[in-house]
Design a protein around this nucleic acid. Structure first.
Lengths: 347, 347
DNA sequence: TTGTAAGCGTTATCAA
DNA sequence: TTGATAACGCTTACAA
């Protein structure tokens, strides 16, 4: 059917339909009110015969608007990020945008590279899933003049739309659950807090929820990512210090929960029996690990969707004040926080 | 610094450097041999001052080559796909290409949409990670005239470069391991085989490896994705029929292994104790599930990298015969196939 | 060594 | 209703 080897252009279509490029362009843009039914039909047929597809490159060049959105992900290996991605994708589909996915692999160079790439492709807006991104990298994002939405992170001293979890609500919910289950020695495990608002807010809400309860020990420790020796040490110390208490560990996110679970395994500690375990972020294997791990699930799809809606609002010219949207988390209770305290107390 | 609101163009740079667009273009393309050091310096400065970034849209439009590669992923939720993605990304970085990631979410419409999108953005080649993609969708890929590489799937009656696991080697390795561990009733669990070569090759090698062994029962069952009742049924039947044998289950891929593990949990069966369990694809939680799950790990990064190299070879004009690359898998032994048979045999 | 001018495939302006 | 024609920002003959 397509005899000529080269891709057909709008001129080819015009020629085949015996008309000018302008009318074809009008057809492409749905301006049917200025097209006679006859002409419209001819164009339609020509397009079908040639299997013509307009060049987005040329379109973007001419119009300046590309309907392209850039997504910068710090670590696509993180299932949390992937779920956010899915939410954003769904929104793109509905709202007529196309997503350019960039995984910076947590490398500053990559992030720089992609940022300039996105701008050179004239994306109309950027969503940044900065989970795990270093401050250094975030700083430079400020320079981008494009509409931008941050997911799950704020940049200090930089006003920017943000969508994420209601950390205050979620951490309170999780902490209260542990307290309600009768645990009286709580350890909050996170990566070094730094200026990462997610971690700060969660640990703060943790302490706030624990403080009023009498007879409760609540502490937190910071362990660098991947530093398993430090994690072992921290957990062991905690368990020994509170040997005669009902111990539980609250973990700041899914990636860290995996680390903690491995560490507990190494030390022969069983969650649910020897101590309680609750992690932020739902894990698809949560129910398979021992007695199952209780998690605090984020409405990830919803967060992703909302982020895209917000960036599009900005693209459409909304110049209102910076907006921060926080979604509530949901507790999914499993065996790791249904203690049979018998074993725990005769240490 | 950037006083004018609009993005600077190559003309702006030329004006600022007091020269013509041609020289700027030459600078951008590294043709320094035809630029006097003085002019080169002026241009360099002008670019820096204006913070100029060439428009890839215009470039692609003019040159016809975009250094863009499209990646079509059927299910980005699958960790296997994400690892492939990482391998491809690494290759892109090294080889100077940019990746457009498209997740079809296993929807035919999406796949159609993205395919035409990619072609309209003038990508120079396409990598298709068709894991889980339906035949229907794959058929249409044939129509694309672009250089294309398939990962992990062949299309019947369609010659196309392919990169993936050496299914024959991997399935043999896995099956022999089970036999060596003393299991004598083997069940291979997969989604319906259909024309999916991955599944077909694996199950075939499974039977081939099992056939010569006397006193060994080897069977396979096909369970639709997400059909947990059917899976329960299949597993229960298998266990009852071979109640007095040493049973082991071999699972065709990581997603299915998750299903099987859940099903076994539901039925109160412990892998390692009540039966053996071995799954294709490494799982990051494999060591945390009960006594740990033995897996057959694919060299995913390597596969992704090789796929991109191949598509680029085609882009560069390699018209050689269709090439199929198969990489060896690696067995990672954990508790689920280190049986203490005592419990198993007194049923 | 440098610059002029003609496109690439669209859309926007204007006149018919 | 239509259709020339001039941009969009860049590359690439072709001249100088």
């Amino acid at each position: 059917m397509n005899r000529s080897s080269a891709k057909p252009t709008i001129s080819d279509v015009a020629r085949a339909a015996n008309t000018g490029k302008t009318s074809v362009s009008r057809y492409l843009n749905g301006e049917f009110n200025v097209l006679s039914p006859a002409l419209r039909a001819r164009i339609e047929q020509a397009i079908a015969e040639l299997d013509y597809r307009p060049s987005q490159m040329a379109r973007g060049l001419k119009r300046g608007r590309t309907r392209l959105i850039g997504l910068i992900i710090a670590d696509i290996t993180n299932p949390y990020s992937v779920e956010i991605l899915c939410g954003i994708e769904a929104a793109c589909r509905t709202l007529g945008f196309t997503l350019l996915v960039c995984n910076t692999n947590n490398e500053v160079d990559q992030e720089r590279h992609y940022l300039s790439l996105l701008s050179s492709y004239q994306v109309e807006g950027i969503v940044v899933n900065a989970v795990g991104m270093r401050e250094e990298a975030l700083q430079r994002l400020q320079q981008s003049l494009l509409p931008m939405v941050l997911i799950d992170r704020k940049i200090p001293d930089f006003a920017c739309d943000m969508v994420g979890l209601d950390n205050q609500q979620a951490a309170s919910l999780a902490t209260r659950h542990l307290i309600d289950q009768g645990y009286d020695a709580l350890l909050f495990v996170s990566e070094p807090l730094g200026l990462v608002n997610t971690r700060l807010e969660r640990v703060e809400a943790f302490h706030a929820a624990a403080a009023p309860v009498s007879g409760l020990h609540a502490e937190h420790c910071e362990v660098p990512h991947g530093h398993s020796a430090a994690l072992d040490e921290a957990l062991m110390t905690f368990c020994q210090r509170h040997a005669h208490r009902r111990r539980a560990v609250l973990v700041v996110n899914g990636a860290m929960t995996l680390q903690v679970a491995r560490a507990l395994r190494r030390q022969g500690l069983d969650w649910g029996r020897d101590l309680g375990l609750l992690g932020f972020d739902e894990l698809d294997w949560a129910e398979l690990a021992g007695v199952g791990i209780t998690t605090l699930k984020q409405p990830t799809r919803q967060i992703g969707y909302a982020a895209l809606e917000q960036v599009i609002r900005r693209i459409n010219g909304d110049h209102g004040p910076v907006r921060e949207q926080a979604f509530a988390g949901e507790l999914i209770v499993r065996g790791s926080t249904r203690p049979g305290f018998s074993d725990n107390l005769d240490g």
